[in-house]
Nucleic acid binder design. Structure first.
Lengths: 188, 188
DNA sequence: TTTGAGTATGTACGATCGTACATAAACGAT
DNA sequence: ATCGTTTATGTACGATCGTACATACTCAAA
């Protein structure tokens, strides 16, 4: 018997985590209160108690996902100590799995859901600006724009093709853009 | 009173067109038999008569969309008579609206739905290969890969930012990639 | 110990969903 | 003209949906 009346504040977060799992596994179009509740191991009523409806759950779930992605993105680039290391980090972001399969799927769901939900739309825009700002730690704005586009698109295409990306090729693409747009810099 | 029993073969196509409209306006997660039927101006029973369920409708709708997009893509690049014109065509694809807002949205829905539906997944892969092949009319494979990624990602980011893309900037990105990956060619 | 406020839950309700299917109209063959 | 076949429709059914809400439980203060 589950304790009733107990104050369980991180239940909210567990529901959000469960929602993200469900979204990643089934897609938004098959995500419902009941499925989320079952996955989180909480009663149905909890969802209406903690959240303001299904859209609210989805919005908070996507916000959580975007925050986690943004943090990884930032950490990955902040760790680089030279432009070369920054380029390598970008290649890693593109080729390596900086996210699980379900996370990537959930990210896609966020992008498409953002076309129909104002809050999630803002989330997408913020995530774009933050990731570009992280690239801005090492690159000028034109470079950051183009690289960010690649970080988005290459993994997507790879998901359709099935074959893993060739790191050397990706590195060459990154280098071509950097050489074109970055001002010359002294070799320290 | 609508005629009953009449053979109306292009009703199938009207339903598919209506489904695409609904998907573009509301998203897959809010697309239902009844909404599509109302939009197409056909009775509910028609959908079960012509199609094998909602997934079937969505799959055929996305197939229709992908075919139209692929054709435009191909036509746009086939019209170019030099590499420079090809580059300009790519810039047009990226910046110009080669698709309506609803079409772009529907394309996104296809991408995300493809993560959960095998047939639509294949559709995404085919669309990738076809668009890359169209770029292959003018560019080598490495260039085509990178340009294709940009055609996908730049409009997406622009949709989030709101501001239109700068054509000169996009042209510079395209040129940087072409110069890096294309073998030198005589100026005829 | 009582009590009141805050926390949490199970259930029930109306709406909507996908789809099956009995019915009906139209058409082609005889 | 009749009749089987094909084409099409309207309705109805069970399942599931989101959500409201009466109820139950806990805890801290009095």
């Amino acid at each position: 018997m589950v304790a009733r009346g107990a104050n369980d504040p991180d239940r909210r977060e567990r529901i959000i985590a469960a929602a993200l799992e469900v979204i990643g596994e089934r897609g938004v179009h098959q995500t419902s209160h009941r499925v989320i509740a079952a996955r989180a191991g909480v009663p149905l009523g909890s969802l209406t108690y903690y959240f303001d409806g299904l859209s609210d759950i989805l919005e908070q779930a996507f916000a959580s996902l975007a925050a986690r992605m943004a943090e990884q993105y930032r950490a990955s680039l902040q760790g680089a100590r030279s432009r070369d290391e920054a380029c390598a980090a970008v290649v890693d972001l593109i080729c390596g799995s900086y996210a699980t399969t379900d996370e990537v799927r959930a990210l896609f769901e966020m992008y498409s859901f953002g076309n129909y939900d104002a809050k999630v739309h803002d989330l997408c825009r913020d995530w774009l600006l933050v990731s570009r700002a992280s690239l801005g730690l090492h690159f000028t704005e034109p470079t950051a724009r183009a690289l960010d586009a690649l970080v988005e698109a290459f993994p997507m295409h790879q998901a359709w093709e099935g074959e893993p990306l060739d790191r050397d090729y990706v590195a060459a693409v990154v280098q071509a853009l950097v050489e074109r747009f970055e001002p010359a810099r002294d070799i320290a």
